[in-house]
Amino acid sequence: MLQRLLHHTDQLLKGLLILIVSTMVLNVLWQVATRFLLGSPSSWTEELARFLLIWLGLFGGSYAYRTHAHIGIDILTRKLRGTSQAIVTNLALVVVVLFALVVMVYGGSQLVLLTLELKQTSASLGIPVGYVYLALPVSGLMIAIYSLAQLFQPKLRAE
């Protein structure tokens, strides 16, 4: 069951990242076209590119964590063997889960709720800024799920 959940989460995340990058490419192309071909740059494209970059960074970080493509310092775990290596690896996973849940999920949720409560909107697009910040708790939840999966099923790897 955990394997299925992870597989579906991976597929959803891949699709979301493809959609974000595709939208960014089209957005930036439109911005360049309106600036240089039409002589009147679009007012909303820069803001959209910034928001998409935030989402790409957070969700891309979640995907990189899942596929072990992120930068990691493994000097200590490489030198250790057996039980010691497993303990340090598990401790690191617990720290990641705690950080993701406390800082990203809880703190990010508080930020989202606050900006939505204050009805803060973006300047050009006029969308609630809380929707932009929503990427923080969602990506934190994904990182926590991926860490817990590794913690409870160490042989479970990204496909």
Score class of each variant (00 low, 15 high):
156 L>Y: 01
147 S>L: 05
52 L>A: 07
139 S>K: 02
146 Y>T: 02
8 H>N: 12
96 V>T: 14
34 T>W: 11
71 I>H: 07
46 E>Q: 13
122 S>A: 10
38 L>W: 13
125 L>Q: 10
128 P>H: 04
107 G>E: 10
128 P>I: 00
35 R>V: 09
71 I>W: 07
136 L>E: 08
130 G>S: 05
66 R>K: 09
39 G>N: 09
7 H>L: 12
8 H>E: 11
100 A>T: 05
28 V>C: 00
59 F>W: 06
27 N>L: 01
117 E>T: 14
16 L>Q: 03
7 H>S: 13
2 L>C: 06
41 P>D: 10
48 L>I: 15
26 L>P: 02
132 V>W: 02
31 Q>A: 15
8 H>V: 13
145 I>E: 04
23 T>A: 15
9 T>Y: 01
36 F>S: 09
123 A>H: 08
108 G>L: 01
14 K>S: 12
86 A>C: 00
47 E>A: 00
85 Q>F: 03
110 Q>E: 14
29 L>W: 08
95 V>Y: 09
25 V>A: 10
44 W>A: 05
131 Y>T: 05
65 Y>H: 11
120 Q>F: 04
58 L>S: 09
75 I>E: 04
11 Q>E: 14
156 L>F: 01
22 S>W: 06
33 A>L: 13
121 T>N: 13
136 L>N: 02
17 L>V: 07
94 V>D: 01
136 L>V: 15
103 V>G: 01
28 V>M: 04
71 I>T: 10
71 I>E: 03
59 F>V: 08
50 R>W: 09
106 Y>D: 01
36 F>D: 12
131 Y>G: 05
84 S>W: 09
76 L>D: 01
85 Q>C: 01
93 L>V: 03
97 V>K: 04
83 T>M: 07
61 G>S: 13
100 A>Y: 02
125 L>Y: 02
105 V>I: 06
52 L>K: 08
89 T>A: 11
139 S>G: 02
28 V>N: 00
90 N>V: 05
40 S>V: 12
149 A>H: 05
120 Q>H: 08
153 Q>W: 12
157 R>G: 00
55 W>A: 13
32 V>S: 03
78 R>P: 02
99 F>I: 11
32 V>E: 05
96 V>D: 07
41 P>S: 09
128 P>S: 06
89 T>K: 11
19 L>F: 14
38 L>R: 05
29 L>G: 04
103 V>P: 03
91 L>V: 15
